[in-house]
């Protein structure tokens, strides 16, 4: 299931990100036009803009609201178990009388945190491998990319489960496990881009000489990477979130009483037979809306940076 996202995007992503790479590189010569144009196009995309606003609201809620809540995420009240949503408990309570509103907010923090950090891990690994393969070329490139190809074919989720089995449930481990799953696309994209830049560098060097050229190139590479990484992050974060939720749902994620959306959904799923719908529906809605928003923003960014993809 976490793959459905990567899957859908994989071909398209690799294609357009590579195009974005070359585009922004060419754009760099024309000043800021590419990113500015992209922003103008993005602003025209109503769904993407709306999603961005919703996403911002959700993140602010996660950060701010728990401070004002009279409850903590672990605070039990055995006199008020399984309360349906009310003025006192906006989102109701669970089997231990814990306030679901607070738990959804705190859980959301964890989920988003995992999503972002795991994405960063994958960006770092992917960039390192991709850049090494692209710059060195030859056999190193062949071997690294062969490894990436082989890894593409493996069911990574199961290796993540194996990791969790070996080291127990561990926050950092989840980052590593997820980062290790999603770095492959980034490696391919960065490799393609680096190779393109290398060839250009060669041509440029014929025209202009000396260190100055290098400075320009370095600046352009950095510029490029910013564009790519922005798109990549918005498209990878929901993928990472899906994996994190998957692990927590199976009871292999975060340690109770701390929780995340996957854990909350899992708790809710266990009592659906008793009609405690709010325990399932509320965290599910937050998760789905967040993922939808990320996907819309990501698609919007992609289309904005590469208008030719649109019909």
């Amino acid at each position: 299931m976490e793959k459905s996202f990567t899957l859908r995007q994989k071909k398209k992503n690799a294609y357009f990100l590579e195009k974005v790479a070359t585009n922004s590189y060419e754009g760099a010569f024309k000043g800021r036009s590419l990113y500015y144009d992209a922003w103008l196009r993005f602003k025209k995309n109503r769904i993407a803009k709306f999603s961005l606003v919703v996403l911002g609201l959700i993140i602010v809620m996660m950060i701010v609201l728990p401070w004002f809540s009279p409850y903590t995420y672990a605070q039990q009240n055995l006199l008020e178990v399984y309360q349906s949503p009310s003025a006192k408990h906006w989102f109701g309570t669970d089997s231990l009388g814990r306030d679901i509103f607070t738990r959804v907010m705190i859980g959301g923090r964890i989920t988003l945190e995992i999503g972002f950090v795991a994405t960063l891990v994958s960006v770092v690994i992917g960039t390192l491998v991709g850049a090494t393969a692209g710059f060195l070329g030859g056999n190193v490139d062949n071997i690294l990319m062969r490894i990436v190809d082989v890894l593409y074919g493996l069911p990574f989720m199961f290796f993540a489960i194996l990791l969790v089995t070996l080291f127990g449930r561990n926050f950092i481990l989840i980052f590593i496990a997820i980062g290790a799953v999603v770095w492959l696309d980034m490696a391919r994209v960065v490799r393609g881009q680096t190779m393109g830049l290398k060839n250009r560098q060669f041509i440029e060097a014929a025209h202009v000489c000396g260190v100055k050229e290098r400075v320009i190139i370095t600046r352009h590479i950095i510029r490029n990477l910013i564009g790519i990484i922005a798109v990549y992050i918005t498209l990878t974060v929901p993928g990472s979130i899906m994996i994190a939720v998957f692990l927590s749902f199976l009871g292999l994620g975060i340690q109770p009483p701390m929780t995340d959306w996957g854990g909350l959904i899992s708790d809710g799923a266990q009592v659906i037979a008793f009609n405690y719908w709010w325990l399932l529906l509320i965290p599910s809605s937050f998760l789905t809306v967040t993922l939808l928003c990320f996907n819309f923003v990501g698609n919007g960014l992609r289309d904005a940076l590469d208008p030719r993809e649109q019909h």
């Binding site: 899906m242 959904i265 899992s266 939808l292």
Partner: peptide
């Protein structure tokens, strides 16, 4: 459908 995980 793509944005809604199986977990949900």
């Amino acid at each position: 459908v793509i944005s809604t995980p199986i977990v949900v």
